[in-house]
């Protein structure tokens, strides 16, 4: 069974600032304590399409493995490695990010797609559209347990993506302060 859900959020900041915040969200030291489930983020590939103004990036993201501690004990892993592919199209003001897990795939598959684009009614705002799909692969005898784990995964992901949006708002606020010449980070 696959669980899918979509979320939408409007940032009251322009697209350029919001996408700048995307790059800083995991890497600025002041956000690390708020996103404690993210252990490490590394850029492993980056290509600039200089004729069309497109930036393609691949990042490796290490997160705490989803699920309760006893499941981590069974699986034998406490961390999960993910890959994030993103395309920024500066000319058309769009950013698309797709994140998938590359380890623990025998147990769970998660795919998250995010799109950032200017708000259709207000060009100074930005809309984030997010689609997440999660499925657990377990023996059919354990289907009911798998379903509970899936539900827990979904709840955890929703909590984490809410935290992620809070951090994005925070980064946008200090980028705005910097742009206005107030060099203070709160």
């Amino acid at each position: 069974m696959v669980r899918r859900y979509t979320q939408e959020h409007t940032f009251r900041h322009p697209w350029g600032r919001v996408t700048s915040a995307c790059w800083r969200k995991y890497t600025d030291p002041e956000n690390r304590s708020r996103l404690s489930h993210i252990l490490e983020v590394d850029t492993i590939d980056r290509k600039l399409d200089s004729s069309h103004g497109k930036l393609l990036t691949k990042r490796a993201i290490t997160v705490n493995a989803p699920g309760p501690w006893w499941l981590q004990r069974i699986v034998g892993e406490t961390v999960c490695h993910c890959v994030e592919d993103s395309t920024v199209d500066a000319a058309n003001k769009s950013m698309e990010i797709v994140t998938r897990n590359v380890t623990l795939k025998d147990f769970v598959s998660v795919e998250e797609k995010c799109w950032y684009s200017p708000h259709p009614q207000n060009p100074d705002w930005t809309v984030l559209r997010q689609e997440t799909s999660i499925s657990c692969h377990t023996l059919s005898a354990l289907a009911s347990m798998a379903e509970k784990i899936e539900q827990r995964c979904v709840e955890k992901f929703q909590q984490n993506s809410a935290k992620g949006r809070e951090v994005m708002e925070h980064v946008c606020a200090y980028l705005e302060a910097e742009a206005n010449g107030i060099g203070v980070r709160v």
Binding site: T19, S20, L55, V88, A90, A91, L175
Partner: peptide, 8 residues
């Protein structure tokens, strides 16, 4: 990214 890429 902020000073060059976003500005074309």
């Amino acid at each position: 990214y902020a000073e060059k890429f976003l500005k074309g």
